[in-house]
Design a protein around this nucleic acid. Structure first.
Lengths: 350, 350
DNA sequence: CTGAAAGCGCTTACAG
DNA sequence: CTGAAAGCGCTTACAG
């Protein structure tokens, strides 16, 4: 059956040159877009490329010394929507600069293997997106700095020595808290935000900033029930917390959540207990995901400004590639945007 | 300042062998885990690796003929949550088999460049996730088949000649429609599901299947207002459609949506017009995303069964790698799971 | 344009 | 264990 006879694929420029009837070096020159070639020759080569599906072996190409024009991206496994948007945006911008990207989606403690893969692939830089195990990422940054490999850490603030671009979560929480204080609130419930989780330390500071500016404090004006439930940081976690708060007498009038899922869950929980949002209690989320719109009432939240974040990261990245290594890390904070929706309102008159 | 003097990174096994004080071939044997080496030698090499951060040049490694043990993944740009879950799950399972993955996140019509990149990187297979431009992906599959490159298409049914794993969306819509018929509904509004979008053809067929089994038909028992709004397929689209439906007299009593966002938007739209869900109208979503829980009432939807899908895809993939090319494409349909929640109920008594 | 040659960084027999 | 050698598939001068 002739339809099943496939010509063996061409595996090298030598073979390919023979097939086109040209010298190996001539083919090579065409493929590298060098000048001084007859148009006819060029066309012959390109047509044969299309016909045979031949493609040069990238491994030989880069072995010969050609830049790989690639960067490695370590992406935290916990794939929430904002992280994914960042990845897509990042790859788009890298492609615009003719860079390819190697992506590894991994557990927060799986960076070692990924980075060594990147190094063996001779990437020109390494990017981390997400929140990784503190010790691990600090080690990786140390290793990369030691060999002078450019790097960026996106959204994991506080890694020693790391070039970092991150949303100013402290500022975000400060603004959110100020918004609530402006509505008359003086007692705050914290949902999933606590000193226990290292990654939320800066948010707690932001809340404190706003409180202290109005002669309030974390100790005196915030309450947490996080210890009552397993830390799932999802809709059900928020719902459970809300039900616990609904059951007590001297309940806070405003609630700040770690993320939108918890916030939406809290709204649901309060309403199931007969409390009106924002009539009786105000609730905020974080991340400004689609589900803020889906919630009833729609959820006040904080936008991550993905586009600005990635733009800053890419700029910072290319300020390192091909330049001498700088010992001082660069740090850029992205200004958050508070989106006020229906879930926050004036404190209820007693 | 000595702290700024970094030793120049070691760039080759030759240099590295000199540094350790061993022969190049000995180092090579250690790195390849060959037998017949003194433990002391092995330890010396491994320790020096750790100290210097040396890693073999992957390009030389694979040029020499070592399998790349890599697959290329083309990922549609339109990054919805289920697609991302698939990506993460896929990469995890590939890693378990010691495969690395090259991922390109791209526009539905950008496959050509990505695939040629994969081929030049000598991947052992190519995977497509998402819905691509019909003509483009058909061309790519043709090219890949011609050179005998294993491939899988996930979630784009109907590509000629393609090895395909996809959720049985026809079956899904049939079951969802049967669920509604069982609740007494006989008049259905379609939100974002129409013949116009090639990608929803199979869902329309599924609805027809269920209707026809009960002496109903698409023509006689379904209505669409899709033509009144720009096709955004998001929350606002659903909300606008619902408001249009709310305004008419002989309104359907059940609504089938293209996705969860539209379904949630429809619920919101109906409620804003004073209609109770599911008291007056029932609404369904598709994809079973987190936001189904956030919606009030919670949204009846269809789960994509990501884990089963990826498992089937990986199995199908490895049934091709290293085996002779088969001319008959393999096709596997994944059985969907209807999740009934609060947004669907008995038809209202007039 | 052609053709022969060197070299990129590896691995893998091979003789010692 | 060492050391010299061949070869993977490319590019890039170089002489013709």
């Amino acid at each position: 059956m002739p339809r099943n006879i496939r010509p063996a694929p061409i595996r090298s420029t030598a073979e390919f040159a023979r097939h086109v009837g040209l010298a190996r070096s001539t083919v090579s020159r065409v493929l590298n877009g060098q000048s001084g070639l007859k148009q006819e020759t060029i066309d012959r080569v390109l047509q044969a490329m299309a016909e045979t599906g031949f493609s040069r072996n990238a491994f030989a190409l880069h072995l010969k010394g050609k830049r790989t024009a690639s960067v490695g991206i370590c992406m935290e496994n916990l794939l929430r929507v904002p992280a994914v948007l960042k990845l897509a945006e990042l790859q788009k911008r890298l492609r615009e600069r003719d860079y390819t990207s190697l992506i590894e989606v991994l557990d927060p403690d799986g960076t070692k293997r990924a980075v060594s893969h990147f190094l063996s692939m001779r990437v020109e830089a390494v990017i981390f997106i997400g929140y990784f195990a503190e010790k691990e990422i600090a080690e990786r940054i140390g290793e990369l700095s030691r060999v002078g490999m450019p790097h960026i850490v996106i959204d994991h603030p506080g890694v020693p020595g790391a070039n970092t671009v991150t949303l100013d979560r402290r500022k975000a929480m400060e603004e959110l808290t100020r918004h609530l204080i402006g509505l008359g609130h003086t007692s705050f419930g914290l949902l999933g935000i606590s000193e226990a989780a290292k990654s939320t330390w800066d948010r707690l500071r932001g809340i404190a900033d706003a409180l202290e500016a109005h002669q309030m404090s974390l100790e005196g004006n915030t309450v947490s029930f996080d210890h009552l439930f397993p830390r799932e940081y999802n809709f059900e976690f928020g719902r459970s917390l809300a039900k616990s708060f609904a059951a007590i007498r001297s309940r806070p009038t405003a609630f700040l959540s770690l993320n939108d899922e918890i916030g939406a869950g809290a709204i649901r929980g309060f309403r199931e207990c007969g409390l009106d949002v924002p009539g009786h209690v105000s609730v905020t989320g974080f991340n400004n995901q689609d589900l803020c719109l889906v919630s009833t009432p729609q959820l006040t939240s904080v936008d991550q400004q993905v586009s600005q974040t990635i733009e800053a990261a890419v700029d910072m990245l290319f300020s390192q590639i091909g330049k001498p290594h700088r010992s001082r890390p660069m740090i850029e904070l992205i200004r958050p945007l508070v989106i006020v929706r229906e879930s926050t309102g004036p404190v209820a008159r007693a």
